[in-house]
């Protein structure tokens, strides 16, 4: 098993370094990424930081090519391990001096340096060491034991993806596919009765609400349905010549209507004095709309 893994390690490392190296060397976002790394402070210049990041990308690509082409020699593997050690040292330095900086490891926007960045660097070290011990090229290993090799490669792919990619970005397409296959888990609404929030929305878009607003003091206090009506109860206060009096403000609306089905709703409004329990007809003034002047 161990020789199998070490024989395939050059291939896995090559793919990994090719992806991250190409991202750094040719990526359009490398400037922006470099600006977030600790390199800017070390090199005193954003342009030099970008160059350094692109340089590392070039080295990674070269190593990838070497690992790919001459996997049974020691040098590419050892160099990869050395690069991994370098990454770890850089991360440790960046973390102690500027913990909020981005690591720039995978040439993608990402947050502060965490355990994941260190595991990635550790993976490069481990992969390099394994690749250095390979004494047989990966292609002959694959042709020799195709099933076992496929299993190891699949496992390595899962490990690398888990460490490299944002889990949400990997899971989202899977979740989307699941919804497409098994249907949407949430069922469409049934029944005539609309949610209370929809009735409140209808009220708040009505002329009745605008007219009653000076009297209403609270948000929705209570609500109930009665014989096709939905009654919305608010607390309020109205003013007459004797002063300000607490009151109940009541609205009655059709419980099947929403702002979509009733663009111009009919709303019943009443204000009841809290003390006397009597309806106050003059508390809400029905609004009169002055027509807009028309150009003739």
């Amino acid at each position: 098993m161990i020789p199998l893994v070490s024989h395939l390690a050059p291939l896995v490392c090559a793919v990994l370094l090719a992806v991250t190296g190409a991202g750094k060397l040719f990526g359009r976002q490398t400037d922006r990424l470099a600006a977030n790394t600790v390199l800017v402070r070390v090199l005193n210049d954003g342009r030099r930081a970008t160059l350094a990041l692109r340089g590392v990308g070039a080295i990674e690509l070269a190593l990838a090519a070497a690992l790919f082409a001459v996997p049974d020699t020691v040098v590419p593997g050892a160099a990869t391990a050395l690069l991994g050690v370098g990454f770890t040292g850089y991360l440790a330095y960046a973390r102690t001096t500027a913990p909020e900086s981005s690591c720039g490891c995978t040439a993608r926007a990402e947050g502060p340096i965490g355990a994941k960045a260190f595991s990635r660097a550790g993976l490069v070290v481990a992969g390099g060491v394994l690749a250095a011990t390979a004494d047989r090229p990966w292609w002959s290993e694959i042709s020799h034991r195709p099933a076992a090799a496929a299993a190891v490669l699949a496992l390595a792919a899962v490990l690398v993806t888990a460490l490299m990619a944002d889990p949400a970005r990997v899971l989202m397409p899977l979740r989307r596919a699941r919804l497409r296959l098994f249907g949407h888990p949430l069922e469409p609404a049934t029944g005539e009765r609309v949610p209370v929030a929809a009735t409140v929305e209808l009220l708040e878009h009505s002329l009745a609400w605008q007219a009653a607003m000076p009297v209403v003091r609270s948000a929705l206090l209570d609500h109930w349905d009665d014989e096709g009506w939905r009654v919305l109860h608010y607390a309020g206060a109205y003013t007459d010549e004797r002063g300000t009096h607490p009151a109940d403000v009541l609205f009655a609306l059709d419980l099947t209507l929403t702002v979509d089905s009733a663009p111009s709703p009919a709303v019943r409004v009443s204000v009841i004095d809290d003390m006397t329990g009597e309806v106050v007809p003059s508390a809400v003034l029905a609004p009169t709309r002055t027509p807009l002047p028309l150009a003739t």
Partner: peptide
């Protein structure tokens, strides 16, 4: 309150607010 609410004045129309 229901009796009072249903017996209230009816205002028709949508608000710009």
């Amino acid at each position: 309150l229901t009796t009072a609410a249903i017996g209230g004045a009816t205002i028709v129309g949508a608000s710009a607010l």
